[in-house]
Write a protein that binds this DNA or RNA. Structure first.
Lengths: 199, 199
DNA sequence: AAAACCGAACGAACTAGTTCGTTTTATGTG
DNA sequence: CACATAAAACGAACTAGTTCGTTCGGTTTT
């Protein structure tokens, strides 16, 4: 855990990332972060004013990486969903942080999430383009479809049974199967057809 | 909040339900529960040995209500998804509790979740029946489809953008639109023989 | 009278954040 | 290269506040 050649500031930030992702804002321990970063609390508070601010810094960082990692390109929504799924698998921390932020929040903070909103709106815009290109059924309301894609890509992260028991396994075979199911689900969702209209 | 004519034990349990759903295990305050239940801490610890045990009691109760509320019947998976969605809307607490339990857990507890596993397995079995009845595409692996249905039905609960900002509104019109989208998504998923089964 | 209940106080353990003396590292100068 | 000086970092103790769980005398209910 201590393998961090970087300067204390980054060491602390990295330690905070796993600490907050694991225990949340309330459950995280400042001393544990400092120790795991091989740094002193004195340094921690020299760089970050607050426990909460450090938490928000981590959250924003995660959201930023998330946003730059999974982007809808070439009107290819299934591939986009696949990228979302892969990101969720490889960076489980990011999803956890988002959940922590959602649960531990009064609704009274907007600092980091403009990142998320900008990202979301951009992808929604691209869904609209994919619809114009005939790659996605036009009867979907873009923003709603976006939410569905997110929900499907992260279904295995939030599913109560699998998740609470650690059952279902995390071996690469099972993961590949899930990924294939995600792709297939999305393909079925977006397949253009002669269906009635919306809302 | 304090209007509870019941005996202290149930008053405490009810207060604990909203407290834990709101703040989680670590964030919940015993004094707040007691006060909100118009009971004394002395009574609380007379009935419940532990903060954690009270939390688990609440969780199990929620899972039980959840399991009896949304059941797959008549091979009608879209209706099942609708029921899941409705339950998520009307009992947001239950979903939050599940998320809290997932996040705040080391993986070292099985007390309450046998409820969830039994429920899950039963619904999976019914999906299999729906497939046999030709109402659901047989090429889906039942358990995987189950997870997808859950993910779709609760997509708006977990979607980062909507959820972190409280945007998107919770008016009945928006909710109805979401519900319709859930149904439509499921219908597209399960539609039999959309794929090349050759012949 | 006995049991259930309240209210208030208390102890012990934790924890965020601060302070301060000491040590290490970086930097510049002769 | 040697050396001085300042900034950066460490470590450990300390403050102040919070919170779980307990205890106990008094009050209401049965």
């Amino acid at each position: 855990m201590p393998r961090n050649g970087a300067d204390p500031r980054t060491r602390i930030l990295n330690a905070a990332r796993t600490e907050f992702a694991t225990y949340g804002l309330a459950g995280a321990r400042i001393d544990r972060i400092a120790k795991s970063a091989s740094a002193s609390k004195e340094r921690l508070y020299a760089y970050y004013s607050d426990k909460k601010q450090l938490f928000l810094e981590v959250l924003e960082l995660n959201l930023r990486e998330f946003a730059s990692d999974a982007v809808l390109t070439d009107h290819d929504v299934p591939a986009f969903a696949g990228a979302l799924f892969d990101h969720a698998v490889q960076h489980g921390d990011h999803l956890r942080m988002i959940d922590w932020a959602r649960l531990e929040t009064d609704g009274t903070w907007l600092p980091a999430l403009e990142v998320m909103l900008g990202y979301r709106d951009e992808q929604v815009r691209r869904i609209r383009l994919a619809q114009a290109a005939g790659r996605v059924d036009a009867s979907w309301e873009p923003a709603q479809l976006m939410t569905l894609v997110f929900g499907i890509a992260s279904a295995w992260v939030h599913e109560p049974g699998v998740v609470l028991t650690n059952s279902g396994g995390s071996d690469s075979v099972a993961i590949a199967a899930r990924r294939a199911n995600v792709i297939r689900a999305i393909e079925r969702l977006i397949a253009p057809s002669a269906e009635p209209a919306i809302n």
